[in-house]
Structures are given as structure tokens and as C-alpha cells.
Simulated scan of single mutants.
Amino acid sequence: MLSLDDLGIVQGTDKSSVCHGYLKHYERLFAPWQHDPITLVEIGVFDGASLRTWRQFFSRARIVGLDIDRDCLRHAAEGIEVVIGSQTDAAFLDEVARWTRPNIIIDDGSHQADDIMFTFEHMFRHLVPGGCYVIEDLSAHVGPNASYWRGKAECPPTDHFGRFFQEVATRQCPDIERIEAFPSAVAIWKSARTNLDAVEARVAQLLDSGDATAESFYRQALFLRDRGKIGQAEVAIARAIEMDSTRPWYHTAREDILARAQARTAAE
């Protein structure tokens, strides 16, 4: 059997090792879904080569391509849908995301910084929990031609998504499970947890009852902090310290929670 990269070479997509070399990474990332009934949405159709590659690799997937060029409709085929619209149109993006419920989104569209970040803000929230959002061709945003691709963005996407690494490392992005970078691209994985609201409600009940250990209160405080429930997080960490004031990481967490509370008050 041909590898995903081999399939891409046959189809002539620039994602293969002949050009950008993304497919070797995608085969590793997407192999668990190869025979599952998932939905893959790719922004940017061009000559349809990557859509055909995906269709051959994923045996049961629904492949959806988005593009502004109506001529791309000719690349629709069995198992491949092509939808015409702009990645700068919020209503269009939200509508497509709602009816496709994508497991994988690949942004290979305009490559302009403002479009990349705008699309991510609208599409990532619709990604199925546990899904993967990929942004390609980030190398365009470094070097002498970077200003050409900036658009109206205040910073290049390399800076914008680079901050995500720090936020994920410091537990400030509960919706993001992990980020993987490879040459000229980044893959952002959505948290696989699907019942966070129910967990939050149960934690609130335990907080009211006071029926928990110091360590439990500490970890509940971290959970509530990451969910943006700063007031409840303050209560939880205070109870942890009241029960056991000898653990320095409790005090570190309290300082962080109080700093966030002050920052939120100042912003309001």
C-alpha cells in the first residue's frame, strides 16, 4: 500500500515531500482516523490535488473543500464536496462549521496573517472535541516577504500562535490539549473532554459542601481558574491553604489566582 506521502506525489499536491513535505507528518497525526467516518475541511482547493489525496487516504471520511473561486466546483466528486465562500466571511465560516462538524481543519487558504487568525477564531470553536486544526505555510511570515502576507494583522501568525505555546504550558488554554509544530506548519489539538460544564457543576457542589481534602481543593482551584471561574477558584484555594498551609505550590496558585482576579477587575 502507498503511504500518504506517496499518494500525494501521485496526485501532485504540494503537500508531498516533492514540495512542502507535510504529508509525512499528517500520516503520523491522522493515522488513528484513517478508517473512521470523520469530516475533514480544507480551506483552499486550488487544483483539487490535496482533496483527492485525502479521499484516497481516508477510507470513510467526508472531505469538504472551501474556496472563493467558483471554478473549484469542478473538483467535487464522490466523497468530496466543494463549497464556495470566503474565509473572511464570518457567517459563511460559522455556517460551514456547524453543518460539517469537522474533526480536522486545514487552513491552506489565502495565507494572509489577518485571514489566518480570523478563520481560526471562527472555526476552532466548532471543531469536534479531540479534533485537530492545522495552519500551513507559516514560513511565508518570516523573512524578507513577510510584510506582503501581513494584511491588516497587528502581528504575524508565528507570533500569535507562538503565544499559544506559552499559554498551554501555563494552563491558560483549557480548550487546547496540545500544539505540535513542524516545518512551516502548526497543528493545534482541541481538548477531548466533552463534559466540562457537568464537571464544573459537580466541583461547585463539592466546594459548597466542603467535602474534599486539601489537595482536592487545590486541584479544583486550578480547574476553576482554567475555566475562568476566578471567584470560585479563590474560595477553593483558600480552603486548601486553610487545611494545609505548608505546601508552597498552594500559595503560588493563590498568588496567580489573585493576580488574575485583579487583572479582571482592572479590565472591567
Rank of each mutant, 00 (worst) to 15 (best):
F46T: 00
T213N: 02
S216W: 04
F92V: 03
D94I: 15
A259C: 01
V186P: 00
T13K: 09
E27K: 02
I257D: 02
D137S: 05
A76S: 09
A97K: 03
D175V: 12
D69Q: 06
P37W: 11
S184M: 11
S17A: 14
L93A: 05
F118N: 05
I176P: 03
P37I: 12
V235L: 15
L93W: 05
G12E: 08
L66K: 04
R264S: 09
A240S: 12
Q205M: 10
Y22H: 13
I176S: 01
L138M: 07
R28G: 01
F182D: 00
V128H: 07
G228D: 08
P157I: 07
L258T: 00
I116E: 00
F124K: 04
F164P: 05
Q232M: 15
L93K: 03
G85W: 13
H75A: 10
E78G: 06
F57S: 02
W99Q: 11
D197I: 12
R98W: 13
H35N: 14
A236Y: 13
L196Y: 08
L207R: 03
K229W: 08
T53E: 01
I241C: 08
V203A: 01
T194I: 09
A49K: 07
R125M: 11
P157S: 11
D94F: 09
E95P: 00
A266W: 05
L4C: 07
A240C: 15
A266Y: 08
S110P: 05
A49Q: 08
A91N: 15
T158W: 10
D108A: 04
D114N: 09
A185H: 01
R101M: 13
I43A: 09
R55Q: 06
V64G: 03
Y26R: 05
V41Q: 03
R239W: 14
Q172I: 02
F46K: 09
A236C: 13
L127V: 06
V134E: 06
F164W: 14
D89V: 10
G48Y: 04
S184Y: 10
V168P: 01
A76G: 07
G85M: 13
G143P: 03
H122N: 07
Q262V: 09
L138W: 03
K24S: 15
S50R: 00
S216Y: 08
T194W: 12
L40I: 13
D69V: 05
I43Q: 04
G131R: 07
V82T: 08
I84R: 02
A192V: 14
L51G: 04
V45S: 08
C155G: 04
R264G: 01
E255W: 04
R219V: 14
D226I: 11
A185M: 06
L66Y: 04
G65D: 02
I80H: 10
R125G: 12
W249L: 14
D71F: 15
P174T: 11
